[in-house]
């Protein structure tokens, strides 16, 4: 049975939180993590939708560095107010 997109988003969010400050994760990493856990029950399209949900809701943001990672909102070292 397909895993609901909301659940995927929540689980991705947890992974991002755990690795914050340690490893930058990209969309592909998150998708692979979900596929590793649930196999065929996760489609690429659902994983993509879950990421879009995280971003559109403002729970996560795209970072540029290292090739567009998905991160928790935070202020960065270079920022000027």
């Amino acid at each position: 049975m397909a895993i609901p997109v909301e659940q995927l988003a929540d689980e991705m969010y947890e992974i991002i939180k755990e690795s914050a400050g340690v490893k930058k994760l990209k969309g592909g990493d998150l998708t692979k993590a979900m596929v590793a856990k649930y196999g065929d029950e996760v489609s690429r399209a659902d994983a993509k939708a879950a990421i879009r949900m995280l971003i559109d809701s403002g729970r996560c943001v795209y970072g540029y560095f290292g090739g567009s990672s998905i991160e928790l909102p935070h202020s960065e070292a270079a920022e000027n107010k």
């Binding site: 795209y62 560095f65 567009s68 270079a78």
Partner: peptide, 19 residues
Amino acid sequence: KHGGLVGVMGYGGGVIGRY
């Protein structure tokens, strides 16, 4: 300095942050 986080809502590209 390079800004990595700025952008428009929902998009991950199209803006180059610069300070």
